[in-house]
Design a protein around this nucleic acid. Structure first.
Lengths: 346, 346
DNA sequence: TTGTATGCGTTATCAT
DNA sequence: ATGATAACGCATACAA
């Protein structure tokens, strides 16, 4: 009663059961117009009955196309990337593409490996937010791009050379808008906790800060700016350091929500009221911003939109004719500030 | 100067360049002992020079084995799952396996689709934390298991029928330990914010709470327990509701960190001191627990360990001889409580 | 409308 | 130690 052999049903098994040829079955399953409605239904019923499971990799090998997108991000447990991936998947789903996600853990070496792995898996396109230390490791990507392989960068993108196809947000505008908001709330001595300046995202947030301060005619000196390194702990120390300086800041714009939250913690430990005594503004709009008290104002980076657009652009590059020119430009999204308790003077 | 044709180098191209046969190249690349050291090095050098990229799916098709694990989780942006995945990947890496991660978004329908997709991708094994609404949708998994397909469940696992191969934590013990900790700190009127009781993880946390209360001879009545539904907002309402009751609780053990944090927020808004006036204990040890103030005590679920073990067990089932019996038992991990400011009376 | 033949890139089983 | 050949499961050009 039981077929001893390997469980897996193939189109040949279906064809045999139905007295048909495998190619007819293949066509029927793919809704090929050539096959008669009758046999198509017959085949599909049989396939269901036999619990047929199409072998995608065999099809991909034959077709030379896997209908799969590869995604590489530094870490999937960062809320921002989680949302970007969601956007990518939504768009891919609609276009009949699958998505494979890998993590580089912010290591350019592992990033390289992941690229190889995904290419070995025959993904049709690549979506990448590069690792922090992927600085000049870019020959690989240059090669890929110039070979015409569909690739889209997003968020953290290579900047060293020419323009690469990418979807990014305008960090400078984000930094500007955040600072401008604080200014509009009446704060004048606004400090900035900036991230590592060799990363252009942090550099741009800093430049945006400067733009807004200059525009308002507010002073920025060495005491106004402090550079932070790791996310978690340094916010408290950073706050203490800033607080020691004179004049003391009235508001702090941090390039990271993590530092902003721990900065707020340090401020409150000193008995300061937020935002009455000191206001805070973060960047990234992490979900925990709603959870902390006071809730933290921040800059939203439109992650879902970013994912959807990057996905769409990659799919377009894949499905468009080879000879068509792919628009290898950078698409720049505008961030949006989200005002919460930490900066709302009402 | 440029080869017009498709960029992709195959073992045939390498063989041609070297005046060898493709099978020799294949053997050399796979470090087959049969091939001479000299040719092996020759082949590898040429492969590098020609920028050869092995086609994994072709190899998988031929071998009948992809060396790939499929993972399905409700959502990758939940810190717990992010860490589990990290554990899975660490272990997989060491064993030369790749990992493909999919999200079910807590929809059993999508979960089904993901299973099909991954099987179509010819993954050698499946690791699944089932969606919240995957209740009796289990015929699929029954079939898979009884067909001998390597599958490991983790965290949220099907409970309806027989025992399935799984790695879980002892939620009841976690609930017990959390409550016991509060008791040891001197609290007597301890309330519990419990999750939906049709999910066994929440049911067990609740039972653990009862165990500890009973053991200490403390009263539990209808007023001691409140059921919460969604994560984010309900913590504040839940706290207000509990606070209305009499006698008022001295401590709250919440089955979720989210509700605990928002509960704390509500408590502090009322001017209460935590933990002096009211203590809080959460569950899951979310990273933001360190960020909020006061920092939130919680129960750690050992996600990395869970991932590593599930991964190891799946790989073992894959690589062991077919006839060997796979240990299809449940492995139970012990949770660990993490004491922070919200419950530390010193 | 359906069948036949071939190949995608690799590995395994034969030979040699 | 290496070569020739077949096969994995599928899709397609071509024939019927």
């Amino acid at each position: 009663m039981s077929k001893k052999k390997s469980d897996k049903t193939t189109i040949h098994d279906i064809a045999y059961e139905l007295g048909l040829n495998a190619s007819t079955v293949s066509r029927a399953l793919n809704n090929n117009l050539a096959v008669s409605k009758k046999t198509r239904e017959l085949v599909k019923a049989k396939a269901l009955e036999m619990n047929y499971q199409p072998n995608f990799i065999a099809a991909a090998l034959r077709r030379g196309r896997s209908n799969t997108l590869g995604v590489i991000v530094p870490a999937i447990d960062r809320a921002f990337f989680g949302r970007v991936i969601r956007g990518i998947e939504e768009e891919a789903d609609e276009a009949g593409f699958r998505v494979i996600v890998c993590q580089s853990f912010d290591s350019s070496e592992r990033e390289r490996e992941m690229v190889d792995t995904l290419r070995g898996l025959q993904v049709d396109g690549l979506l990448i937010s590069i690792a922090k230390d992927t600085g000049d490791n870019l020959k690989l990507y240059e090669k890929l791009i110039s070979s015409g392989f569909p690739i889209q960068f997003f968020d953290n993108v290579p900047t060293s050379l020419e323009v690469v196809p990418a979807v990014i947000i305008d960090d400078r505008q984000g930094g500007y808008a955040a600072t401008k908001h604080l200014i509009d709330q009446g704060y004048k001595r606004i400090a900035h906790l900036r991230g590592p300046q060799h990363l252009h995202i942090y550099r741009n947030r800093y430049l945006g800060y400067l733009d807004a301060m200059k525009e308002a005619g507010l002073e920025v000196n060495d005491d106004s700016v402090l550079e932070i390194v790791s996310h978690f702990d340094s916010g408290e120390e950073a706050f203490e350091e800033l607080w020691k300086r004179s004049p003391r800041p009235e508001a702090i714009f941090s390039a990271s929500d993590f530092s902003a939250v721990s900065g707020m913690k340090a401020a409150r430990r000193r008995g300061l009221r937020v935002p009455e005594d000191i206001a805070f503004m973060g960047f990234s709009n992490e979900p925990f911003n709603e959870l902390v008290s006071p809730t933290l104002s921040s800059v939203d980076q439109q992650p879902i939109t970013m994912g959807r657009i990057a996905s769409r652009r990659a799919i377009k590059a894949i499905t468009s004719k080879e000879d068509e020119e792919h628009p290898n430009d950078q698409l720049v999204l505008m961030p949006e500030i989200v005002v919460r308790e930490s900066s709302a003077t009402k």
